[in-house]
Structure formats: C-alpha cells, structure tokens
Design a binder for these strands. Structure first.
Lengths: 146, 146
DNA sequence: GTAAGTGCAAAAATTTTGCACAGGC
DNA sequence: GCCTGTGCAAAATTTTTGCACTTAC
C-alpha cells in the first residue's frame, strides 16, 4: 500500500498528460485526503493557496476535468449542486452523507449492485454508470438536536 | 384519474401559499408532462413563454423552490449539473437515464430499498432521503451508433 | 387594505474559454 | 524548439436577491 516513488507521475503520464506542477500537486492533494475525500474545485484551490502554490482556479477545473476523463478522479453531483471530486482508487463504492455536518461515508453492497444490473436489463438499457446517494443524519448529528 | 376542479388550487393552498397565476400555471405544466416529467427551471420558463404567460424566470425558480419545500415537487441533480424538477405524485421511485438522448425512465425496487435501510442502520445513520441514478444507453440509443 | 407575490435587472456563484506567456520533453 | 499547459481576466451559465409595483384574500 505504500510506494516510494511518486506514483502521481506515472498516473499522469499514463493519462497522456504532461507531468506538470499543477497536475502533480492536485493529485497529491487528492491522495492526501483521509477525513474528507470529496473536494470541490474551490476547496482544492484553497488548499493549493494555503500551500503557497501559484495555481489558478481555472487550472484546477481543467486538471480535474482531465483527470476525470482519464479515470483518475470521479466527479459527483451531491445535493447542493456543485461538483465534488474524489480520487478513484479503483474500488467502486456508493455514498451516504450527513445532511447536517456534511460527513461522507462510503459503502458497497453486492445485492444492490446486482439488482441494478437486473433492473437495467429488464428495461433494456445498457448500463454504463450509476450513482447511489443516501442522505441522513450521521451518528454524531442524530443525537445532537439542531 | 380525471378531476373536474383544479386540484392545483388545493395543493397550493395546502402548502400555505397564495393561489397566484404563476403558481397555478407552473403546477399545470408539471402535471401536463407525460413524455418527459423532469424539467429544468429554464424549460418550465420556456413553456410558459410559449403559452404567452408573462412570468419571469426568477419567479419560476422561486415557485419551484417553494413547491419543493412544500413537498409538491422533487428536485434532482442529474449528471450535467443543473437541477431538474419533477412533480411528486407521492410514489417514490428511482431513475435510469440515457446518456445519449436524455430519456429518463423510472423504477422502484423493494430489495434495493430495504438494503439501503439496512446499510444506513449498520452505519448508524438516520436515513432521510436517497437518490439512485442509473446511467446508460436506452433501447433505442444502444443500437444506433454514435 | 395589507401582506405576500411578482417582474425586472442586477448580483452571486460556479464553471468555461481566449489569449499571451511559461514550461515539459 | 515545439507544442502542451498555465495564469489571468473575461465570458458563459445557472441561480438568487433587491426593490418598486401588483395581486390575492
């Protein structure tokens, strides 16, 4: 699980993109996230600023879009409208999030996955992708009243 | 299935809102939709224009937001970013949509529904809502190449 | 009559794009 | 050195808001 060489370099190059500072930095930021792995472009930009990187917001959008196209990153449209980006670690998963504190947890469920395929089949669709979002109160927030 | 009196009136009044032309018209438009029940605010606005109604886009947004708060309408964030609104007929359902032609079909699945509850419970969340979107090619589009 | 509702235009918020300059290979 | 990539500012898009006027009740 630990790699000595900057894997970012390979991933970016494999995507057919030049290895540039903004791209490496943004990928590193996405990899660094442990608590909250789902970032808006704006948030990525602010982290870059806080690290004294001279990278424009437009570049953040461009890079994230390229990463998405390359399959390095997944874009989600959670409630609220704006996009959040998450590093794609290869494992598919769905999301459950707290409507109060914004906490996001991940899960997978084989039964749901297989039902989705059956549903698509029965409606004669060729499934390419899916998104399942559960919304509610997380353990912490459901005890604390508003 | 057919009602002689404008049910819109009741629904709007029950929501604690005054019965105004924009509100009635917008509700009627949402009810009229059969082929595509999921409309953006912009699309609702254009339909109003085509019916020679003098209603501003801002009002469309305001009314749709009020309807959402009142539970008359459901707002979705499909891929692509902008919100679509759908009349809430009381029946919960999920969505499968064609990434090529934009067609949207609806479905429900008890197994998925119950799994969702179990997942939320196992993660100690109090579930309030959920959204399941399947994306793919509809029967028509999967045969026709790009 | 009065408070809620509306139209319009202006503002906000988010994302995209044009262009001259910079940097990877 | 060439071509891709980037920063910046301007534009495009979507949604919200302020304010004077209108309408429901």
């Amino acid at each position: 699980m630990y790699r000595s060489l900057p894997l970012e370099t390979h991933d970016i190059r494999n995507a057919g993109l030049k290895v540039t500072t903004p791209r490496v930095k943004i990928l590193q930021i996405l990899e660094k996230q442990t608590a909250e792995r789902h970032l808006t472009a704006e948030k990525v930009y602010k982290i870059l600023l806080s690290e004294d990187e001279d990278i424009g917001l437009a570049t953040v959008y461009r890079v994230l879009t390229q990463f998405e196209a390359a399959g390095l990153v997944t874009r989600h449209h959670f409630e609220g409208g704006n996009s959040v980006f998450e590093l794609d670690r290869g494992d598919h998963h769905d999301h459950i999030m707290c409507i109060k504190c914004g906490k996001v947890d991940e899960f997978t469920d084989d039964i749901i996955e297989s039902r989705q395929k059956q549903i698509a089949q029965s409606l004669d669709y060729e499934l390419t992708d899916h998104a399942l979002y559960l919304y509610g109160f997380c353990p912490k927030c459901k005890t604390t009243p508003a």
